[in-house]
Design a protein around this nucleic acid. Structure first.
Lengths: 149, 149
DNA sequence: AAGGTTGGTCAGAGTGTCTGACCAGAATGA
DNA sequence: TCATTCTGGTCAGACACTCTGACCAACCTT
């Protein structure tokens, strides 16, 4: 007997599509030669266009700065980011996306869009757009640590 | 500059409220003397009313049976579940919720409902319900391993 | 009854995350 | 100015989670 999604708790209802999308994107990226783990991607995703500082990434992801440091090390080794000095603060370093990293971003976006197209087919474009709008409003409220890119 | 949620990718839009809800519920449970980790809770949540087998929990959570076994050990130690023999299959054992576990379920549901009320205030009850319906349809599609409770 | 399949455990490795301690540069204010 | 406090980042160590591989016992099929 399959579960009854209508009565399922909202957390699971959010989690199931989230994980599905994440897995689809990560799988496809790996196949295309851009391997990245979910944890790495969750940090990578929050890097701003002009680079971000470690502490800001930590806040945005709700991880400790040590954990983010650990993941940024890996992203750096993989060639997706570099740590540039921050002209404004000699203590800080800006985690910055490399050209390779930028390709990864684009590929990820492309695959994400592909999944989203499937979802639009399934749900109807209007319902999907409506859901996205509601989720955006909700995210504004539930994002405890908006980042300063 | 705060992020622009409207253009944010759908994955993050799903993830942010998901994690918020999870954290709120887990925090409150801990304060009330029912400590449980996110990983444990994700397994616990999938246990059916008449108990579930390890392999089914593994399928439902997309974890390996070893990982689920590891987490069920902890849930058992914490007193939330027991492993009962399965009358239908001598190999199998049914992971079953104890009375304490049931209290945890109820408390969790209560807190979840509280957060959901906040969301209803924020979004309007109609929009929330609409979002839930769309998410339910989406979950049906994105749940690769529906469990058999 | 033999052979394959399935539910579960044991053992070991790798990854992710945390807390605590620490350092160097920045910001504050007497 | 310079002592104090605050902040960005790293190092070290511990714990939590998840995986792969090997294995056993019970089930199912023929």
């Amino acid at each position: 007997m399959p579960p009854d999604y209508d009565v399922m708790n909202t957390g699971l209802l959010l989690y199931l599509p989230y994980r599905y999308l994440e897995e689809r994107v990560l799988e496809a990226l790996r196949e295309q030669g851009y391997p990245i783990t979910a944890s790495q991607a969750r940090v990578f995703q929050r890097i701003g266009p002009h680079g971000s500082r470690l502490v800001d990434l930590a806040a945005a992801t709700s991880l400790t700065k040590q954990s983010v440091g650990f993941l940024v090390d890996q992203l750096e080794t993989a060639g997706y980011v570099t740590r540039e000095p921050d002209a404004r603060d000699a203590r800080a370093r800006l985690v910055t996306i490399t050209p390779t990293g930028r390709t990864l971003v684009e590929e990820g976006a492309r695959i994400g869009a592909e999944v989203e197209r499937e979802w639009a087919d399934l749900l109807g474009a209007d319902d999907l757009a409506q859901m996205r709008r509601t989720l955006a409003r909700l995210s504004e409220h539930t994002d405890r640590h908006p980042d300063r890119a």
